[in-house]
Design a binder for these strands. Structure first.
Length: 542
DNA sequence: CGAAAGAGCCC
DNA sequence: GTACGGGCTCTTTCGT
């Protein structure tokens, strides 16, 4: 079936096909949207194509695929294909071998412009008068698009592509084209990673499950003897309080009931210091059950590990979802195995502090990095403290931590001591310190900051967040966002390698890619030096 | 049943 | 009297 939305009338299908041929073939740019069975990724049921903001065509996808026109257009690298959320559409259309080199994505453009990325919202803002609808207006919950009358789906899809086309006309030129190109190059890479997945050694998985199951049963049994569920922080809090353990209390207003409540915090950081063996049992239980329920059990039903990659993090970071593979604890990494004997791992060493050194223009810090020194050791030597603590202070600076949190995370006795450490850090790295302060002020004034490559990151407003929170974000967004965009450029440069995983400052490829990585000269990808540490391993190691 | 809260895993 | 940036997922709890 072919659908049409526009102001033409056709007396026959042949006439429509003829017209469509005229309108679509030979165009340099079209907007595309795929409709799927449901809101999860599945098979596409139809695609919409528009070569203008005024009319669009809809093709149902049938087994015979008799209509060759959409595919002729979509496989052509000479045609710019505009999507709104290309990551989704290209993934659903993967079996049709759509060209993915000449694409652009209006949702990414919206995000780069700090505008709402949802199609209905973006259209509402930039194309008032254009009609688009959210799928939720048509279907709810478990319903599928299949249950919609064809005409309704066709009309909706046509409206979406027309809007996407128009949105690109309006916004396309407003963003930095080079920056946009990197974002677009990332999309096929992420799809490739999503589809490739990672091998699982199920024998190893079973071994690990046995180990943590034993722990869980043991600690769980201990708690059961005392009649409470260690999985319930509420029960844990009451029991431990009754046994005279000192834990922090929080007075909080329950959002649902509006009543004031006192809550006992049973977080691990609060409980490790307790003498009570029951507290330690709870911690043992939590550790084991976390690893079982989040990292081991869910893999039982899967041959390989797959996740979906996204680019919507506020700082421009890439994230992994639907079985997050970016937070696998070292304890269970051994169950991930390569398809080709090895994994090759390369990571950008201390990329965030290097960003800070470069962006702030801090010469002391740059000097340490340029001479191949160890920044944390340098800090430690200057301050006369352990490296571990110096490292903590360094991170605290990037995160904008207060003296109190430095004290807690670095395990320092007094608050005064933590303040002293922070002051010494400012003294050692004067420019960086100055930059942090001025960045906070500018962030507060402008409501946004800019990264290394010029991406604008919006900060929360004073209505949404306290001033000190905004100050911290101003600094951190620049550092984290800049590191993220460097890594994205690295990924694009590594696009010929079989990369299976990205963990923020680290990439992992299947097989021995060490030589391939070395050849790419990644150390000079940014305007400053970033050494990449390359490792070859037989399974995912720590 | 779903949302919120609390916890804990990663960089 | 004062919460460290960005993520994701799991379990419990509680109101509907």
């Amino acid at each position: 079936m072919i659908g049409y939305l526009g102001d033409k009338q056709f007396s026959s299908r042949d006439e429509l096909v003829r017209y469509m041929r005229e309108q679509l073939l030979g165009k340099r740019k079209v907007a595309v949207d795929a409709e799927t069975h449901n809101l999860q990724y599945t098979q596409p049921v139809g695609i919409g194509i528009a070569a203008s903001g005024e009319e669009a065509f809809y093709f149902t996808i049938e087994p015979e695929l008799e209509d060759e026109i959409p595919w002729k257009v979509l496989i052509d690298p000479g045609v710019l294909k505009v999507f709104h959320n290309a990551l989704f559409d290209l993934n659903t259309l993967i079996d049709f071998h759509i060209d993915d080199t000449n694409i652009v994505d209006t949702s990414t453009i919206c995000r780069l412009l700090c505008q709402p990325a949802k199609l209905t919202e973006a259209v509402g803002r930039f194309l008032p008068g254009m009609e688009v609808h959210d799928m939720s207006e048509y279907i709810s919950g478990s319903q599928t698009t299949m249950e919609l009358p064809l005409e309704v789906l066709s009309r909706k899809c046509c409206q979406d592509v027309m809007a996407t086309y128009a949105l690109h006309e309006v916004l396309g030129e407003l963003v930095d084209q080079q920056y946009l190109a990197v974002e677009m190059d990332i999309i096929p890479i992420l799809i490739g990673m999503s589809r490739r997945g990672i091998g699982i050694d199920h024998e190893e998985r079973v071994r690990l499950e046995g180990k943590y199951e034993t722990d869980k049963v043991y600690y769980g049994g201990l708690c059961k003897e005392y009649g409470f569920n260690p999985g319930s922080s509420q029960q844990v809090g009451y029991i431990l309080a009754k046994r005279n353990n000192l834990l922090p209390m929080r007075r909080v207003i329950n959002k649902r009931t509006g009543k004031r409540e006192v809550k006992i915090s049973t977080r691990a950081e609060n409980m490790v210091v307790l003498e009570d063996p029951l507290a330690q049992a709870v911690l043992g239980y939590r550790k084991a059950s976390k690893i079982l329920s989040t990292y081991l059990r869910p893999m039982e039903i899967h041959d390989r590990a797959y996740c979906r990659w996204h680019t919507e993090a506020r700082t421009g970071r890439i994230t992994s979802t639907r079985r997050n593979l970016q937070n696998i604890p070292p304890e269970v990494r051994s169950m991930y195995i390569p398809d080709n004997e090895h994994f090759t791992d390369w990571d950008a060493t201390q990329i965030e502090l290097r960003c800070l050194a470069y962006i702030s223009g801090d010469e002391e810090m740059q000097e340490v990095f340029d001479s191949g020194g160890d920044i944390h050791q340098d800090t430690a030597d200057f301050m006369g403290i352990e490296r571990r603590i110096a490292k903590n202070v360094g991170f605290a600076m990037i995160y904008g931590a207060t003296a109190k949190t430095i004290m807690e995370t670095a395990g320092i006795q007094s608050r005064g001591m933590a303040e002293q450490l922070r002051d010494m850090w400012f003294d050692r790295y004067k420019m960086a310190g100055l930059w942090i302060v001025t960045t906070q002020e500018e962030g507060l004034r402008n409501g946004m900051v800019r990264t290394l490559y010029g991406r604008t990151l919006k900060l929360p407003s004073l209505e949404e967040e306290r001033e000190d929170g905004i100050r911290r974000k101003a600094v951190n967004y620049i550092i984290q966002g800049s590191a993220a965009e460097i890594i994205k450029r690295v990924m694009v440069k590594c696009s010929q390698l079989p990369v299976v995983l990205q963990v923020h400052d680290e990439l992992i490829a299947d097989g021995d890619a060490a030589e391939g990585v070395r050849k790419l000269d990644l150390d000079h990808i940014a305007p400053f030096h970033i050494p990449f540490k390359i490792r070859l391993m037989e399974r995912w190691e720590v």
